[in-house]
Simulated assay, not measured.
Amino acid sequence: MAESNGMTDAQLIQQLALLGWLKTDSVQCKDLLTAVTGIQVGRELLDRLSGQSQIDAYRRECIQSIADFVKKNPRASQRELNAEVEKNVLVFASRVQTL
């Protein structure tokens, strides 16, 4: 989901539905607000149960660690790069497995 000023697309849609409901008190706006809120709650529950956000964080850390190594070691051999990638992927896999 894209963010603009700290609000995700889903949050923006939810706020628009809420605003529409508050202004008009229409059944359609209330139904839209209920649907959008239900989807957000369901997605958050699934994310928490699956640990997907933690996996994504571990993935970002793995990639960043490899990128940092490459920046600090621009003359590293292919063998050194492969070893660093393998080390970081194993750390990532280990962390994911402990979830």
Results as ranks from 00 to 15, higher is better:
residue 3 E to A: 01
residue 3 E to W: 01
residue 4 S to R: 11
residue 8 T to K: 02
residue 8 T to M: 08
residue 12 L to D: 09
residue 16 L to M: 14
residue 16 L to A: 11
residue 17 A to F: 06
residue 22 L to D: 10
residue 25 D to L: 14
residue 25 D to C: 07
residue 26 S to L: 09
residue 26 S to C: 08
residue 27 V to A: 13
residue 27 V to Q: 12
residue 28 Q to A: 14
residue 28 Q to T: 11
residue 29 C to V: 00
residue 30 K to P: 01
residue 32 L to H: 02
residue 32 L to W: 06
residue 33 L to T: 00
residue 34 T to D: 15
residue 34 T to E: 12
residue 36 V to L: 03
residue 36 V to C: 10
residue 41 V to L: 11
residue 42 G to V: 04
residue 42 G to M: 04
residue 45 L to A: 06
residue 45 L to W: 08
residue 46 L to R: 05
residue 49 L to M: 07
residue 49 L to A: 05
residue 50 S to A: 05
residue 50 S to M: 02
residue 54 Q to A: 09
residue 60 R to W: 03
residue 62 C to L: 02
residue 66 I to Y: 14
residue 70 V to P: 03
residue 70 V to I: 15
residue 75 R to L: 05
residue 76 A to G: 05
residue 76 A to C: 13
residue 78 Q to N: 14
residue 78 Q to H: 08
residue 79 R to K: 14
residue 80 E to A: 14
residue 80 E to I: 04
residue 81 L to V: 06
residue 84 E to G: 01
residue 86 E to Y: 11
residue 90 L to N: 12
residue 90 L to K: 15
residue 90 L to D: 14
residue 91 V to T: 14
residue 91 V to F: 06
residue 92 F to N: 04
residue 95 R to H: 08
residue 97 Q to I: 02
residue 97 Q to A: 13
residue 99 L to A: 04
